[in-house]
Design a protein around this nucleic acid. Structure first.
Lengths: 199, 199
DNA sequence: CTCACATGTTTCCATTGGAAACATCAACGA
DNA sequence: TCGTTGATGTTTCCAATGGAAACATGTGAG
C-alpha cells in the first residue's frame, strides 16, 4: 500500500521551508492583516503540517520575530537608500523621515508587527541586530543634521517620535479627518511635508 | 433537588454585570496586558458564564470598544484638567502634550487598546463620541497656542504625532536606550521635556 | 554502511470566540 | 391578581488555534 514515488507526490522534505514560511507569513500579513497571520494558516499555505514551523522557529513568537527582523532590515535599507540620494545633511535628515513613513504606508502589516513588542522576542539575534541597525540609520541621520549641538538623545527622540507617531496615526486611520478625504498615500505625504515645513 | 435560595446562593441576575465586566476587563488589561484580556477570563473574574457579555456588548470587539470608549473619556478628562491648570496658551499646549504621555504611561494597556483599531469598532456611538471629544481637546490646545497662522491641520498633526509617537515608542520600550537606564517614568518625562525644549 | 540528527507528520489537548437553545426573573397590562 | 413578554444569564455545542509528544523520513559524516 506504500505510495510509489510518482512525479506528483510531494517530497517528504520541502527543501526550503524556512524561506517559504517567511514568504507566506508576509503575504498573509499583507493581505489579511496582523490577525490573519496564523501559524496554521501559514503552514497550510505552504502545504506543510501546522507543527512544521516549530523546527525552524520555535514558536509563533519565533516566526513573528524572524519576520519582523526581515522587516527591520528592509526598513533600514529603505531609509538608507533614501538618505543616500541627498547630499545636504538636512535634506538627508528629511529624506530619512519621509522614508520612515513611506515604508510604513507601503508595508502596513509588517510595520505594525515590527512595533508590536508583546508578540515579538527581542532577544532573538536576528531581530536584535536588525533593530539595532535601523536605529543606527536613524541616529546617524539626526546626528549629521544637527552636529554636536544640544542634547542628542532629545533630538533623536524627537525626530523618531514625530515620524513614528505620524506613521502610526496614519495607519490607524486617525489622521483621516485631517486628510482632505481624497484618500490615499499622496495626501498623507503632503501632510507630512506640511509638518516638516513648520518652523 | 432544587437548590433552596440560601443566603450564599448567588442571585441568577448579577444586577450590574455591564459595569462589573468593564471593571474586570480593565483590571485584566492593566495586569496581564492586552493579550490577557480574554472574553472568558473576564467573565470568569466576575463569576458569570462566558456568553454573558454578549447581552451587554455583542462581541469581544464590542467589549473592547466600550472599554476603549471609557479610556478615551478619561484621556480627554486628563488632558483637559492638565490644560486647565495653565493660563498662558503655550503653557496649556505643552501641558496637554505632557498629559498625553502621562496618561499613556499610567495606563499602558488601556492606551494601547485605544489605538489598536483593528480590534475596535469605531462605529460604536460611545467610542465614536469619546474619540471625537479627545480629538477636540487636542485640537483646541493647538489652535489656542498657534492662533490663526499657518496650516492648522499640519500643526495638529505635528503635535499629535510627536506626543503619540513618543508615547508609543516609550510603551514599547524602544526609547530605553535613550533613557539613561535609571528606568521609570521620571526619566521618560525628563526626555519629553528635553524634546519640548528644542527650538 | 549505518546511525545520529535535522526536518516533517500525526495525534492529542486546553483555550478561545461564537451560535443556539434553554432558564430565570422583573415589569407591565388585562 | 395573574400571565406573558423581553431582558439577562446559563448550558451545550462547534470550529479554530497554539502547543506538546510521539513517530516517520531522509541525509550526511564517520
Amino acid at each position: 500500500m506504500a505510495t510509489p514515488p510518482t512525479s506528483q507526490s510531494k517530497p517528504y522534505h520541502h527543501g526550503a521551508l524556512r524561506q517559504a514560511l517567511l514568504g507566506a507569513a508576509e503575504a498573509r500579513l499583507a493581505q489579511s492583516g496582523p490577525d490573519g497571520l496564523t501559524l496554521r494558516a501559514v503552514a497550510r499555505d505552504v502545504g506543510a503540517s501546522h507543527t512544521a514551523p516549530r523546527n525552524h522557529f520555535d514558536d509563533l513568537t519565533g516566526l513573528l520575530s524572524e519576520l519582523a527582523a526581515v522587516g527591520f532590515e528592509r526598513f533600514a535599507d529603505h531609509m538608507q537608500a533614501a538618505a543616500a540620494e541627498q547630499v545636504a545633511p538636512m535634506a538627508r535628515f528629511n529624506a530619512t523621515g519621509r522614508a520612515y513613513v513611506e515604508f510604513a504606508v507601503a508595508n502596513p502589516g509588517l510595520f505594525q508587527l515590527m512595533f508590536r513588542s508583546e508578540r515579538l522576542d527581542a532577544g532573538r539575534p536576528a531581530l536584535r541586530d536588525a533593530m539595532a541597525r535601523a536605529y543606527r540609520v536613524l541616529q546617524e541621520a539626526v546626528a549629521a543634521a544637527h552636529p554636536g549641538r544640544g542634547d542628542m538623545s532629545a533630538r533623536v527622540a524627537r525626530a523618531w517620535s514625530l515620524a513614528h507617531g505620524f506613521a502610526m496615526l496614519l495607519l490607524d486611520g486617525r489622521l483621516d479627518p485631517l486628510l482632505a478625504d481624497q484618500s490615499g498615500a499622496p495626501e498623507a505625504m503632503r501632510l507630512l511635508e506640511a509638518i516638516l515645513a513648520i518652523d
